[in-house]
Design a protein around this nucleic acid. Structure first.
Lengths: 213, 213
DNA sequence: GACCTTCTCACCTACGTGTTAAGC
DNA sequence: TCGCTTAACACGTAGGTGAGAAGG
């Protein structure tokens, strides 16, 4: 339905920095069904994992790469009769903290050398999870829609001397935060592609999500 | 025997940087028996793990922390009749590459905030381990004696603009690289303290390594 | 009741141990 | 034979899954 109208990148860059999203096919298969991400008290990883490549940085300059989640609208969404509908009442305003990629800070050469993976970021619905919660947890509101955004910041000699280089987001990575999956097709896609869900690959009825029909 | 003569730190520091070794009691219990570390083709972690704390860095300056292994002498060592003896023939010259702590580079405030652990460094006896060997592997010669050394380097705006701040080593962390444990007392200590060896904790005869006797 | 959240669970992935037997 | 190295193995640690029942 809307899968053909996805434009993959919105770039606002002060330098000639280019970022590319990996696993686009996978992301789009989820996006077509309206993607959902589980949030838990202790934090849940994302699947698919946000992975990007970066070009155009100065190899010898120092950068940090960050991730945050922009609340896309003020609706509380509701899954009814097989589709997501915006709720009537507007909900909570955003107050987003940044997830710092664990390789940060690092040289441009480091960031451009390999794929940059955000596999370790955890989504939570509780402000304070546990004593050892540290960083790595990002607070989201369940049943609200989010757009992941990647920020590239140049860091100078001191910790406060920083300058935003670019902000990048990819429409196919949008999702609705949930405490339990609503759409069974999303569940099936998660089980099919996430290695950690292998236990359920043969024990659950499969939907024909991949058939060309 | 020689356990009482261990001096714990040799510091050569251009600034007032102080590093402290953690788990000194544990390290000394191994050092008393002449410590051994396994080297394998694919790389083996160290146990005990090298863990230090650092003080005296400039919180806002950027540093990298590195680890290397200084070959202590030119002997090939041999375990005979319960003790290590230096072999007659001199052996290979050193050619040591540095293991970069995965948090590198980072601000002084980061390095001083928490304990710095070198748990992920892997010791190998093969130059090229596997296609995905990447960094994290350090080549050592089996049956040679090594002294781990920690280097702190200030890194500037560019990747090559760096200046060594200090080099620190702790005598109780010396070891002989082996492909299989020679001294059964060392094996027992490893099994006793390394959680990953728990499978052997109750199935193997224990030596009275900890009795005050 | 309907909706959403929380918790426990079996079942995985991923990989760090020393052991043992085989290889050289 | 002897000394040393290698590879397969059982058995742990550590932690990521959705399912399902229970809670609010």
């Amino acid at each position: 339905i809307k899968c053909d109208t996805v434009h993959s990148q919105q770039a606002q860059s002060r330098e000639d920095v280019i970022t590319s999203l990996l696993d686009k096919e996978l992301w789009r298969s989820f996006h077509c069904k309206t993607n959902e991400m589980i949030v838990t008290k202790n934090g849940r990883r994302m699947f698919p994992v946000l992975r990007i490549s970066i070009r155009g940085l100065n190899p010898d300059s120092m950068y940090s790469v960050m991730l945050d989640f922009s609340q896309q609208d003020e609706h509380k969404w509701k899954y009814m009769n097989g589709s997501w509908l915006p709720g009537t009442k507007g909900e909570t305003p955003p107050q987003q903290d940044m997830y710092l990629h664990p390789d940060s800070p690092n040289f441009g050469s480091h960031w451009m050398k390999d794929i940059i993976s955000f596999s370790k970021v955890k989504l939570t619905n509780k402000a304070i999870t546990s004593p050892g919660h540290s960083t790595g947890h990002t607070l989201l509101h369940s049943l609200h829609k989010y757009q992941p955004r990647i920020h590239i910041v140049r860091v100078g000699g001191t910790e406060l001397d920083r300058q935003t280089i670019g902000m990048f987001s990819f429409e196919e990575t949008q999702f609705i935060a949930v405490t339990a999956y609503q759409n069974e097709e999303i569940t099936s896609l998660k089980i099919k592609h996430n290695p950690f869900a292998k236990a359920f690959q043969d024990s659950k009825e499969r939907f024909s999500v991949d058939r060309k029909s």
